[in-house]
């Protein structure tokens, strides 16, 4: 997977998270995964289609998702309800859209699907014939793993 595809996602994630959460954010070491991996509890997925194809996952523990949703709404949300889900979905949408805009300006043409959210324990994600690059992001609310799998279309 070419690094040109990854950097815009990392940059967009930093910009958006910093702006909407207003907390200190640290990036962990990037790593590649080509086999199945566990999902942390709340995962938002956005699909990409066009010159390249693939998907981006935003993976976090439910407690992290709830803390982030509370911060973004300016009020403490008691449970991971519809508003909390809509908030995390919107976060994934903003990050992906900003990355797509950057890639678009670099000459890549593709669109994104509306985000979907999965919640639950003991989930795994498997990509066939496509490598996933993980960008871990740490903050006081916990960890978000941004999991990007993109390939050029044949």
């Amino acid at each position: 997977m070419r690094v040109e595809y990854i950097n815009p996602f990392v940059e967009a994630a930093f910009n958006v998270l910093r702006e909407v959460l207003n907390v200190e954010i640290k990036r962990g070491e990037l790593y590649l995964k080509s086999v199945s991996q566990p999902v942390l509890g709340v995962t938002s997925i956005v699909g990409l289609a066009g010159d390249v194809e693939g998907r981006v996952l935003f993976d976090m523990a439910e407690s992290t998702a709830l803390a982030i949703a509370s911060q973004m709404n300016g009020e403490k949300l008691a449970s991971f309800d519809d508003l909390a889900k809509a908030t995390i979905t919107e976060l994934a949408n903003m990050i992906t859209a900003q990355a797509i805009t950057k890639l678009h300006d670099l000459g890549f043409q593709f669109d994104l699907t509306p985000p979907a959210i999965f919640t639950g324990d003991n989930m795994q994600v498997t990509d066939t014939e496509i490598e996933a690059l993980i960008v871990p992001i740490e903050m006081k609310f916990g960890k978000i793993e941004i999991n990007v799998a993109i390939r050029e279309k044949n």
């Binding site: 949408n93 903003m94 992906t96 859209a97 900003q98 797509i100 805009t101 678009h104 300006d105």
Partner: peptide, 13 residues
């Protein structure tokens, strides 16, 4: 004459 503001996460030119 409708006054419409677009609000989107996409900023594509």
């Amino acid at each position: 004459d409708a006054k419409i503001i677009m609000i989107s996460a996409l900023g594509k030119q």
